[in-house]
Design a protein around this nucleic acid. Structure first.
Lengths: 126, 126
DNA sequence: TTTTCATATCATGATATTGTGATATGTTAT
DNA sequence: ATAACATATCACAATATCATGATATGAAAA
C-alpha cells in the first residue's frame, strides 16, 4: 500500500509529528473503526477460542453431540474442568444443551463457530 | 456396579457409564481430533485476537500500513502500550514492518488475519 | 428412603496477561 | 557533539484465567 497524503512535494512522507501524524491516513483508517464496545465483544468472542480445552470441546462437538461424561472420557479430563468450560461456552452461546434424564447432551449453537475453528486450524496447519 | 462391553444392540445410546461411555461416538469424534500441539498452537493463534488493543491495531492495519505513532494517535494509546502489543503481533507473525529511517511502518503479514478478523466481526454484529 | 450417578457451582492457589513508567537504542537534524 | 524524536525493552502491580478439590443439585435405581 502506497502512502499518499497532502504533502505534494513528497518531502515529508517519512516524518512523524506528534501533533499531526500522517493525518489523512490516520483519519481514514479511524473512520472505518468499529466502536469500543464492538472491540470488547469481539475480543471476548475470540477469547473463547484461546483455550485448548475449549477448542477440544468445540472440535468434538463439531463431529457429534455429546454428553459431559463422553467429553471427559474423550479428552481424559476431570468432570469439573469440562463442566466449567461448558459453562463458559454456554454463557457465550457457543454451545447449547438438552437435558435427557440426568444427562445433558451438548451441541454447537452455530455454524459460525465451526467455521472460525476450521479457518484457524487451516491457518496454523499451512 | 456392572460394566457393559460391546453394546452391539445399540440400545444403550442414552446411557452414560463411566468405564464405557457412548463408545462408538466417542471413538469416532476422537479419531478426527488434531494433536495436542496443534490445539496449543491454535489457542495461541486465537489468543492474539482476544485483546481489544490488538484487534484495534489489526483493524487499522487492514485499512492502511501505519507507523507506531500513527497507531498511537489513532487509538489514543501511549507508545509503550502500542509497542508492546506490536511486539506480540510481530512474534506471532501477524504483522511485519519495514524500518524507514527512524520510523517503523507496520502492515499485516497475511490475508488470513484480515479474514478471521472480519468473520468474527460479522458474527458479533449479526 | 437411600444410594448412585451425571452434572453444576463454589472457592482457591498457581499462572498468565495487561497497561504503563522508566529507560535504552538508534536515527536525523542542528 | 548534542538535541530531538521514533521506537523498543524492562520491570512490575493490577487483574484475569485455569484446573481442580470440595460440595451441591437433581434424577433414576434399588
Amino acid at each position: 500500500m502506497e502512502m499518499k497524503d497532502n504533502n505534494l512535494d513528497g518531502k515529508n512522507e517519512d516524518m512523524c509529528e506528534v501533533f499531526n501524524a500522517h493525518e489523512d491516513v490516520v483519519k481514514r483508517a479511524k473512520q472505518r473503526m468499529p466502536s469500543e464496545d464492538e472491540y470488547l465483544d469481539l475480543s471476548e468472542f475470540f477469547k473463547i477460542f484461546s483455550n485448548p480445552t475449549r477448542l477440544k470441546i468445540i472440535s468434538l462437538l463439531s463431529v457429534d453431540d455429546l454428553c459431559v461424561c463422553d467429553i471427559c472420557e474423550a479428552l481424559d479430563l476431570n468432570q469439573t474442568t469440562v463442566s466449567n468450560q461448558l459453562r463458559i461456552l454456554r454463557a457465550n452461546n457457543i454451545v447449547k444443551f438438552q437435558k435427557e434424564g440426568k444427562m445433558a447432551r451438548y451441541s454447537l449453537t452455530d455454524l459460525h463457530i465451526e467455521m472460525i475453528y476450521k479457518v484457524g486450524l487451516e491457518h496454523i496447519l499451512e
